[in-house]
Amino acid sequence: MVAILDMPESPAELAGWLDRVLMSENLAVVVDELTVMHQTADELISVEQARDWLGDSFPAVMERGLSALSHSRLRQLLVRPCLLPAIQELALISGGPYWNQLMCVIPVAGVAPIAGRESPRNRSNRWLFAFVPLAVAASVSAFVVIDADRDKGGIKPLPQSDLVITRGTDVPMDRSPPVDNSWGWNRTDLLDDVNSPEEIPNRLADGLSEWFSMAEVADRDLIADLADRDLIADLADHDLIASAADHDLQIFTLRVNEMWAGCEHFSTQPFNGMSANLKQSLRGSIASFQDNLEAVLNKLDGPIPDGEKSSVLEAAKKSVDSSVKDAVEKLRGLK
C-alpha cells in the first residue's frame, strides 16, 4: 500500500530501485506518496525542464540509468518527485538498451524485486493477513527460516543451533504459503462466532489471555511462532542484532507492538449493535491498555545501555504481564 516503504536502505541500491519504478506502472503511486511525505508542491515539469535538470548527466542516464547521478542528486529526485514522470518520458523516448531491458523484465503491474534479493514488500505480501480489517496482524509473521542467503547476514553472536528453527526449515521460504500463526487480538477468527455484541468483551479477553500462553513456550519456538520475519531479517541483514539480549528485546518489542496495533484496530471498530454504555466502557478499557503498552514501548525505544538490556527486558515483561492481566479482568467485568 505504501510503495515508498519498499525503498532500499542502501544508497547503492536506490538508483536501481528508482529505475525500476520509472519502468513500472507504479510510478504515479510513488510520485503521489513522495509528494505527500515531503509535502512538496505540485509542480508542472516538462520534458525539457527535466532534461535541463539532468544537465550533463543526460546521456549517461539514458545509457545506464539513474546510477549515473550522484547520491545527492538522487535525493533531490525523492524530495522533488514531480521530476520523475518527465524523466520517465525521456527514458521512454531516448533510453538505450538498459531501459528497454528493464521494461521487458518488469511485470506490468509492479516493481520487480532486486535481483537475488526479495523486496520487503514481497516478503510481507506472503505473510500479510488476507483479512483486511486485521491488517494490523501484518506484524505477526509465521516462519523464520534461516536459509543459505540469510546465513550470510546471520545473527552472528548466537550459536548456530539457535539459528535453526524447527518449524519451517523443511519448507524453503520462497515456496512456503502464508501461514496464519496469529495470536491474541490479531487472530483473524477472534470474533468469528460471536452471537451477540455483549460477548465481544469476553472474546477480547480470551484473545488477550493468549499473551500468557505464548510467553510460556520455549524461546526458540517463540521465535518460530511470533518473530517478525521482516524485522528480524532486516536487522540481521544489517548486523544490527548484536547479542542474545538484543534478540530477545527485539522479539519482545515486536510482540508488544503487535498488541498495540491490535488495540489500534479495535479502538476504531464500530461494534454495531452494542449498547452505547458498553461501547464506551469497552473503548475506554482498550485505550487504557493501549496507553500502558505505549509507555512500555517508549521505554524500550529509548537508549538502553548494553549491560542493562536484560534487566530492562525483565521489567518490561513484568509491566506488560500486569497490564494484560488488568485488561483481561476489566474486559471480563464489562456488562
Partner: peptide, 24 residues
C-alpha cells in the same frame, strides 16, 4: 539522539503501523 539500531527498530515498527493504519 538514537542509535542506528533504535532508529532501525522505529523504522520497521513505523512501516508496520503505517500499513496497518492505511488498511484500517
Amino acid at each position: 539522539n538514537l542509535s542506528n539500531q533504535q532508529a532501525s527498530q522505529h523504522f520497521f515498527a513505523a512501516k508496520k503501523l503505517l500499513r496497518a493504519c492505511l488498511e484500517s
